[in-house]
């Protein structure tokens, strides 16, 4: 451990849980403030929130206070238990994503052996929450939104999962810590100066992962499930106050987590040349900062796409996934396999 005193398992666990409980809302706030409020505004020649705090930096505190004060409402015909549980399921899925993301040689809640597989598995739990919300609201818009979300998420789950396979083939690891190490110890044509970030060899995988992430987060241009102009807000329409906030936390927390996953798998994670990949105090202190910068870079790409492209129609969206992304992902897997075995 990095600490001089040896901590018992449960003491360490309490620290980790508290850390993640702080990180999830903070990461969400950073993403929303930086990209959704300010970047989107400047890209559209607006200023965005300016009143609360310097340059509107405290806007989210005001928003949070507003959400907490709102009355919680449920439609009279709603299935109340499922209606209440749905946002909790979405939040749970996002929360568990943060367990496996490493931010330093020892800075990780739990480096599971099947880390990336676990991350992909828990990320798809949120589909259940969305379907639950759509059904339990007893509202036609919500039902349509929930069904659209489910259709979209099953179509884009496959490119997401298959894009990762290329990375697994190259590194021979499922653990995220192992993937970071494989990139740190790799070499490009025998030159090991910057290690071997997989974005160079797995560029197709990276692009597939970004597109699929976009769809998994139901962001524009894949935002048919919550299309404001036709479904009002889809499965979120009946939620108010804190429960609505949970959906928001789930969505943008997941945006941060997916960006961090992409940064870990394709950009080298917390490692930069010069750090000791096997441990040491400096790696553990600098690692989180490095990962944060890389995560924000990926998040910038994701939100750039979000603010730029118009919404896809439902049939175009399905066609794009099944007739282009999935075949491309399969070809990518085979090509990576051939290179791995023959070279």
């Amino acid at each position: 451990m990095i600490l001089a005193v040896e901590l018992a398992y449960w003491q360490l666990l309490v620290i980790k849980v508290l850390a993640v409980m702080v990180i999830v809302p903070t990461a969400t706030a950073v993403i929303v403030q930086t990209f959704l409020f300010k970047m989107m505004a400047h890209m559209q020649s607006r200023l965005g929130p300016m009143e609360a705090g310097p340059h509107g930096a405290l806007q989210l505190l005001a928003d949070g206070a507003k959400f907490v004060q709102k009355e919680l409402l449920a439609p009279e015909r709603a299935d109340r238990r499922v209606f209440f549980l749905a946002p909790v399921v979405v939040l749970l899925s996002t929360f568990l994503l943060f367990v496996v993301i490493p931010a330093g040689p020892n800075v990780v809640a739990e480096d599971l052996d099947i880390g990336i597989f676990f991350a992909l598995a828990v990320s798809s739990i949120s589909v259940l929450g969305i379907l639950m919300a759509g059904w339990a609201s007893a509202n036609k818009y919500a039902l349509m939104g929930g069904l659209r979300a489910a259709g979209q998420l099953i179509a884009y789950e496959l490119p997401l999962v298959l894009a990762v396979v290329g990375v697994v083939i190259q590194s021979g690891e499922l653990s995220l810590q192992g993937i970071v190490r494989a990139q740190a110890e790799g070499a490009i044509f025998g030159v090991g100066l910057i290690g071997q970030p997989f974005i160079f060899t797995q560029f197709i995988g990276f692009a597939l992962f970004l597109v699929a992430t976009q769809a998994e987060l139901t962001q524009p241009p894949f935002d048919m499930p919550i299309a404001e102009s036709e479904l009002v807000a889809g499965y979120q329409v009946e939620y108010s106050g804190l429960q609505f906030l949970f959906f928001y936390l789930g969505e943008f927390g997941a945006a941060f987590a997916f960006s961090a996953l992409a940064a870990t798998m394709f950009l080298g994670g917390w490692y930069v040349p010069g750090l000791d990949v096997d441990g040491g105090l400096i790696s553990n202190l600098v690692g989180p900062a490095v990962l944060f910068v890389k995560t924000m870079l990926v998040a910038f790409l994701i939100f750039w796409i979000r603010f730029t492209y118009p919404r896809l129609r439902e049939d175009q969206l399905q066609t794009f996934a099944w007739k282009f992304l999935i075949p491309l992902a399969l070809v990518n897997i085979l090509a990576t396999g051939v290179f791995k075995v023959l070279f």
Binding site: K16, V17, M21, F95, L96, V99, A109, E110
Partner: peptide, 8 residues
């Protein structure tokens, strides 16, 4: 650990 995080 994962279960504890779900509880958290």
């Amino acid at each position: 650990t994962v279960a504890v995080f779900a509880g958290a």
